[in-house]
C-alpha cells in the first residue's frame, strides 16, 4: 500500500465518435499510470488533444474510464453508482474550470454556497463557510456581486472559493488561467500555491503555460494519451 491519494494504473479511455457504421473509436488514454501524493501540487502539460482534460475528468469522477484502475484516497471510484459518485464528488473534489462556470443568476456568495446545499450544514454554518472561503480568495467584500459584476480574475477566485468551500481532498483545475490576463493569472496561481502550501491541499492542474507550471512541485507531460515525462522539482522552488 502506498500513501498515494490518487492511484492510477493502466487507465484507458476510448470515445466513440459518430454512430452506426461510421462509428470511430478514439483512444484518448492508452494505459496511463500515475500516482499523486497527498499535499502534492502537480502541473499537467501536453499538446492540445493529448487527453489532459479527459484525465482530469476521470479523476474528478465526472467521466468513467473504459478500463484500468482508478483509486482516490483508497476508494475505487469506478465502482460507484451514478448517485454515489455524485455524492463523492460533492464531498471530495473541488473542480476549477477554465471558464469559471459560475451560475450567472446567483451572487458570489450563493455560488460558493451551492455545493454546501448538498451537505447537512445549517443556514448559519453555510454562511460561515462561505465567508471563510471568500476571505481565503480575498473577495469577502464581493459577497453580493453577481458574476457579470466581477472581472475574470475575480470570477475565477469565486470559482476557487466554490471549489474549496466543502474542504475537499483534491483540487482539480483545468487551465485555470487559460482565459485570464497575465496579472490575474498570476493572482490565481499564487492563490493555488497558497492553498497547497498553507492549507495542504492536493492540487492537480492542467496548463499550457510553462510559467504556470513553474508554480507546481511536480510536472507531468502527457502526449497522445501516455505520460512522457515526470519531473519532481526541488521543494524550494516558488
Amino acid at each position: 500500500m502506498s500513501d498515494a491519494l490518487v492511484q492510477i494504473r493502466s487507465l484507458e479511455k476510448t470515445y466513440t465518435r459518430g454512430s452506426g457504421r461510421d462509428a470511430q473509436a478514439v483512444h484518448v488514454l492508452q494505459g496511463l499510470s500515475l500516482q499523486v501524493h497527498k499535499g502534492d501540487f502537480v502541473a499537467l502539460m501536453g499538446p492540445s488533444g493529448s487527453g489532459k482534460t479527459t484525465l482530469l475528468n476521470l479523476i474528478a469522477g465526472i467521466d468513467r474510464p473504459t478500463a484500468g484502475e482508478l483509486m482516490v484516497d483508497g476508494l475505487d471510484i469506478t465502482r460507484l453508482s451514478e448517485s454515489e459518485l455524485a455524492r463523492w464528488r460533492a464531498s471530495s473534489v473541488g473542480f476549477i474550470f477554465q471558464l469559471y462556470n459560475l451560475i450567472p443568476v446567483l451572487t458570489a456568495a450563493e455560488n460558493v454556497e451551492l455545493p454546501l446545499l448538498l451537505t447537512k450544514l445549517g443556514k448559519r454554518e453555510r454562511r460561515e463557510h462561505v465567508q471563510t472561503a471568500l476571505s481565503v480568495v480575498g473577495l469577502a467584500d464581493r459577497m453580493g456581486h453577481y458574476p457579470r459584476q466581477l472581472s475574470g480574475g475575480q470570477e475565477q477566485r469565486v470559482a476557487i472559493a466554490r471549489a474549496i468551500v466543502t474542504d475537499p481532498l483534491l483540487l482539480l483545475a483545468d487551465e485555470p488561467t487559460g482565459d485570464l490576463d497575465k496579472a490575474s493569472g498570476e493572482e490565481i496561481l499564487e492563490l493555488l500555491s497558497r492553498l497547497n502550501r498553507e492549507f495542504g491541499k492536493t492540487i492537480l492542474m492542467v496548463t499550457h503555460d510553462p510559467h504556470a507550471a513553474e508554480r507546481a512541485k511536480r510536472l507531468v507531460r502527457l502526449e497522445k494519451g501516455v505520460l512522457v515525462s515526470d519531473d519532481v522539482k526541488a521543494p524550494a522552488s516558488r
Binding site: A86, R87, W88, R89, S91, V93, F97, L114, P115, R162
Partner: peptide, 8 residues
C-alpha cells in the same frame, strides 16, 4: 456544472 459539483 452543477452535476460536476455533486448534484445527482
Amino acid at each position: 456544472v452543477m452535476k460536476a459539483i455533486g448534484f445527482t
